[in-house]
Computed example of a mutant assay.
Amino acid sequence: MAHETTPSIHLIARPAVDLEGMRAYLEDVGGGSWLERRTAADTAPNAGELLVEFGGRACYRSWEPGLNVNVTKVRTDQRDYLKNILKSAHGSVLEHANYSFALRNVSRVATHEIVRHRAGAAYSQESLRYVRLVDIGFRVPPALEPLRQECLELVERLEEFQVSAAEKLKIDDDGIPFHVKKEVTSALRRLAPIGLSTDLILTMNLRTLRHVIEMRTDTGAEEELRLIFGRLGEIMVEEAPGLFQDFTRRDDGSWVPEFRKV
């Protein structure tokens, strides 16, 4: 029977660094003391932020003063260093760090918009060519709240059609080959609501995340996108605070950076 759902966002992967590999490189270029400072604390360094800083310092050989004769002074505080990266729009180094999320019970309306973000992103979505619709999840958007019951009844009728059509076409009878099941399943999805709940695995680098979180939480964005990326903003401010230090969440729910188009 059709049921109501609520989107949920799960961080499932974050960057990892090989400290020994970094150390071997730095011993060759003369920047080993930088890594010693970054790993001196009792807690492990934030891998995403360390990777971004590593990329940035490699560009200018700014591990220590004097390694590049043009550099006589370097920022030693990581948060200050990352703020300067953001302020100077040196955004390419943010592309080294990728984060992956499982988006559960988001609508295909939302996923159709999300997958338009191609640069710095990768997606894997539940395929309705292979997954039969026998239990449709659906979220009633706020604008349709006065029509809640009518919406749910309509979705339930569409679900009943999916089940009855499969029965009438006898695709679960013994001996029916998989390619026939797939063909019918693919055809039936054309008669399913675009607002049905689905799952999407999403990977974005930090540069893309900053841009999309700002764009999709703007007051003019689609309301479900604002919900999804509002939660992503919360996750990333906690996950990579140095690289989201300039983000502020307004009372209207939008995430706004001080430094745009990094």
Rank of each mutant, 00 (worst) to 15 (best):
A44H: 04
A40K: 15
V109D: 09
L152S: 12
A121G: 05
A16I: 00
R79S: 13
R129S: 15
P15K: 09
A44R: 15
R129L: 12
A97Q: 00
V109C: 06
A89R: 11
A121I: 00
V134S: 08
A41E: 02
L154Y: 15
K83Q: 09
S124M: 10
Q149C: 11
P45V: 05
G31D: 10
V140S: 14
R132T: 04
V71D: 13
L67Y: 00
V115N: 01
C59M: 07
Y25S: 01
P146F: 02
L158C: 14
R118A: 08
V71E: 09
K73I: 08
E153A: 13
L133F: 08
P15Q: 09
H96G: 06
G48I: 00
Q125M: 13
R129N: 09
R37W: 08
A40V: 03
S62N: 14
W34Q: 07
N84G: 10
I85C: 07
G137Y: 07
L50P: 01
R79I: 15
A122G: 03
E64Q: 07
P142G: 05
V106I: 15
V17I: 03
K73R: 12
R139S: 01
Y60V: 12
D28N: 07
Y99N: 12
R116D: 06
Y99I: 04
H96N: 14
A97T: 07
V109I: 05
R23Y: 08
A89F: 11
M22C: 05
H117K: 01
L26P: 01
P142E: 12
T39V: 12
V131C: 13
A44V: 14
A24F: 06
R38E: 10
E20Q: 15
L128W: 07
L26H: 03
L144D: 13
Y25R: 01
E113C: 03
T39P: 13
R132E: 14
L86S: 05
I136E: 03
R116M: 07
E150R: 12
P141Y: 15
Y81V: 05
Q125A: 00
A119Q: 10
L86W: 03
Y99P: 01
G66E: 08
A58D: 11
T72N: 11
G32V: 13
S107P: 05
I136P: 02
E49N: 13
H90S: 11
R79Y: 02
R157T: 03
R116I: 14
Q78A: 04
V71C: 06
L51A: 15
D42H: 08
A24H: 11
R118T: 04
E49V: 04
L133S: 13
L103W: 01
Q125N: 04
L147A: 12
S33A: 15
L158M: 15
L51E: 09
E113T: 07
D135T: 04
N98F: 09
T72R: 13
G91M: 10
